[in-house]
Amino acid sequence: MSSSLIQQSLTEHRAALETVSAMAPEILRAAESITQTLRRGGRVFACGNGGSAADAQHFAAELTGRFERERRGLAGIALTTDTSALTAIGNDYGFDAVFARQLEALGQSGDLLLALSTSGHSPNVVRAVETARAHDIGTLGLLGRDGGAMADLVDQALIVPATRTARVQEMHILILHLLCEAIDDTDPG
């Protein structure tokens, strides 16, 4: 790996960071939606594939555990963690249904779904968003590139317009941490 390649990646990272900086009001609005959901006794579900699945789990863990300050545990549920459910649903209904079917079973009106996708086109995440909408569950998309199919499906889309998946993922984890900071600051417990 050459020094110029590293410099190019850092330049891309800084450009992506500038777009996130400009999204501060949107990120705050998303944090307020999450906080309101939790204050009303709703739960926050999260889903995604690959790195986005890991981010969904990370975010749910920050809610149920804690981010940086002591507070009561908050209702965060990653739909990516139950291997028995994922494999049974995938086997019986197809991989596109793995999140939607869980949301149908566990979600209630007033809950919120955080849908993560670097492309915005992941069929199983799109289907989860459609299921959420059909069950009066709020939707927040953490997306990349142009937001894909999900940009117009979710109630609010936070779109990192980078083209490289790595840059989108780097900004997604930053946004998730910014959401956690804002949630902690408002003390939804």
Score class of each variant (00 low, 15 high):
Cys180Gln: 08
Asn124Leu: 11
Ala56His: 00
Gln169Gly: 07
Ile27Pro: 08
Glu104Gln: 13
Ala100Tyr: 09
Ala75Met: 08
Ala85Lys: 07
Thr80Asp: 02
Gly147Pro: 06
Leu38Asp: 06
Ile137Glu: 05
Arg145Tyr: 02
Arg66Val: 04
Pro161Val: 00
Leu176Tyr: 00
Ala15Val: 00
Gly189Asn: 13
Ala115Met: 11
His13Gln: 11
Ser117Val: 08
Thr118Trp: 03
Asp185Met: 13
Asp92Cys: 09
Asn91Gly: 06
Met1Thr: 14
Gly41Lys: 02
Leu114Lys: 01
Ala166His: 08
Glu170Cys: 09
Ile159Ala: 01
Ala151Met: 02
Val160Asp: 04
Val160His: 01
Glu70Lys: 13
Val126Ser: 12
Asp152Gly: 15
Leu179Asp: 03
Gly50Pro: 08
Thr163Ile: 06
Leu28Met: 12
Leu176Lys: 02
Ala115Ser: 10
Ala149Leu: 15
Arg127Val: 10
Arg72Cys: 14
Pro25Trp: 07
Leu176Pro: 07
Thr64Cys: 11
Met171Cys: 15
Tyr93His: 15
Arg29Trp: 05
Glu32Gly: 08
Ala151Asn: 05
Leu116Thr: 10
Tyr93Pro: 02
Ala182Asn: 05
Gly51Phe: 05
Arg40Leu: 13
Leu79Asp: 07
Arg40Ala: 15
Gly107Ile: 01
Arg43Leu: 03
Ile159Thr: 13
Glu130Tyr: 04
Ile6Gly: 00
Gly42Ile: 02
Ile6Arg: 02
Leu143Trp: 01
Ile175Gln: 09
Ile89Ser: 04
Ala151Gln: 13
Leu158Pro: 00
Ile173Asn: 06
Ser9Phe: 00
Arg145Cys: 06
Ile89Thr: 03
Thr186Phe: 13
Ser2Thr: 14
Arg133Met: 09
Gly147Leu: 01
Gly73Met: 11
Arg14Thr: 10
Ser2Ala: 11
His13Ile: 02
Leu112Pro: 01
Arg145Gln: 13
Leu113Phe: 07
Glu26Asp: 15
Arg167Asp: 10
Val20Lys: 00
Arg127Ser: 14
His177Trp: 11
Gly107Ser: 11
Ala134Phe: 12
Gly138Thr: 08
Cys47His: 06
Asp96His: 12
Glu62Pro: 11
Ala162Trp: 03
Ser33Phe: 14
Leu174Trp: 09
Gly51Pro: 06
Ala15Leu: 09
Thr139Ala: 12
Asp111Met: 09
Gln102Ala: 07
Glu26Met: 10
Thr83Val: 15
Val98Glu: 03
Gly148Phe: 10
Ser52Pro: 00
Ser109Val: 04
Val129Gly: 08
Ala22Met: 09
Leu112Met: 14
Ala115Thr: 06
Ala46Thr: 09
Asn49Ile: 00
Glu170Gln: 12
Asp136Thr: 12
His13Thr: 10
Met23Lys: 01
Met150Tyr: 04
Arg127Met: 14
Gly94Tyr: 12
Gly94Cys: 12
Leu10Lys: 00
Thr80Pro: 09
Ala149Ile: 13
Leu106Lys: 06
Tyr93Asn: 05
Asp155Trp: 04
Pro188Met: 14
Leu112Glu: 01
Val154Gln: 01
Ala75Cys: 09
Asp96Arg: 10
